[in-house]
Structure formats: C-alpha cells, structure tokens
C-alpha cells in the first residue's frame, strides 16, 4: 500500500469507528436526556404554580405557555419562560401567573451567570418569594415595589424588567380576571 492510501484508509477507518460508537451512545442516552429535560421543565412549572400536578403546553402568539392543573383537572395557573439581560449574561426565569386573580403565583430562576454572592442571590427565596402573590398591575420597579439585594442593582432590575415586559404579552392573551 502506498503511504497516501494508507493515510486515507486509517483516517477513514478511525472516523467510521468513532462515528459508530457515537451513534450508539447517542441512541442509548437520547431518550434519557429528553426525559430529564422534560422533568426539569415540569418541576419548574410545578414550583411556580402551587397545587399544580399536571401540565399541558399551549402555543399562543409566539409564546409557549404551560397550563398547570391539579388532579381533579382544575386549572391552577399559567407558567411561561422569560429571559432578562443580567450583569454577566442572560437570566432565564420561569414565571407563574394566575389570570383569575391577576397575580403572580411564583417565580423560579432557571439559569443565570451572575456574580456569586451578589447578583447570584436573585436565586434565593428571600428574593424570589416576594413575587408570590404580587399583582401583575404593579410597576415592578426595584427599590419601589421590588426589594433589592445589597450590593447588586442590575440583576434584580433585570429580573423585574423581564417579568414585566413578558407579562404585557401574556396578559393580552389571558386578560386579568378572565378565564383560561
């Protein structure tokens, strides 16, 4: 075999073997990965809608909304994802909303890369709990109706702004006081 042919043969053989191995591992792990992602999503939805046991996904006006229901099939609230631009990257937030009462039912920070010890404290219940039961008609302005974190101004403001701006769209789809 001439040396160039040999090079090609070896490279192709190694690539093929690698490809086969990867295809196999992908087949093994993919269903598990999907399941994990779904589970994480459901967990987040259940967390922001108290009392919800099941969820259904609906697509409306370009937004993906998750409707949470309890075991009897009573609708408990709507959850949706929104993204704010924090101090050092995007902040992903899951927001729970109850149109009938016109109030938020809770929020959960899904992912963020804020400064540990400062901005990262938006993840703590001390910060997120204040949104529980907050009227969607509020201003969502830090230091006015949103408690802030000592030493961090940008991260809480980013969360508040993201929630407020996405609520504008959501309340159009499910107006306050209306059914859902």
């Amino acid at each position: 075999m001439n040396q160039y042919t040999r090079m090609i043969v070896v490279l192709v053989a190694i690539s093929l073997a690698a490809g086969a191995l990867l295809a196999f591992s992908y087949e093994v792990t993919n269903p598990k990965i999907q399941e994990q992602a779904q589970q994480a999503l459901e967990q987040a939805v259940m967390k922001v809608i108290p009392g919800a046991e099941k969820m259904t996904t609906v697509e409306k006006e370009g937004m993906t909304l998750y409707i949470g229901t309890d075991n009897q099939g009573n609708k408990k609230g709507i959850a949706f994802k929104t993204t704010g631009s924090g101090f050092s990257g995007p902040i992903e937030i899951m927001v729970g909303y109850n149109p009938k009462e016109g109030k938020l039912t809770g929020i959960e920070i899904l992912s963020m890369s804020e400064t540990p010890g400062l901005g990262a404290r938006i993840k703590e219940p001390a910060f997120t709990d204040q949104f529980k039961g907050k009227s969607v008609k509020d201003d969502f302005i830090p230091k006015k109706d949103v408690k802030v974190i000592t030493g961090a101004t940008i991260s809480p403001a980013a969360v508040s702004k993201a929630i407020k701006s996405s609520l504008a769209t959501v309340t159009k789809i499910y107006p306050v006081g209306g059914d859902f």
């Binding site: 070896v10 490279l11 190694i14 690698a18 591992s25 990965i33 994990q36």
Partner: peptide, 24 residues
C-alpha cells in the same frame, strides 16, 4: 503524518461519550 488528527478524533469521541452520559 496524520497522527494528530487521529488522536483528536479518538479524544473527541470519548469526550462526547462522557458529555452524553453526564447529560443523561
């Protein structure tokens, strides 16, 4: 002459396997 590409393919394969299993 092609040893480095071969090594990289081998390493990349095992890394991707770790990546997938960790994710799962």
């Amino acid at each position: 002459k092609v040893r480095i590409p071969c090594y990289i393919i081998v390493i990349a394969t095992f890394t991707t396997i770790v990546d997938l299993f960790m994710k799962a």
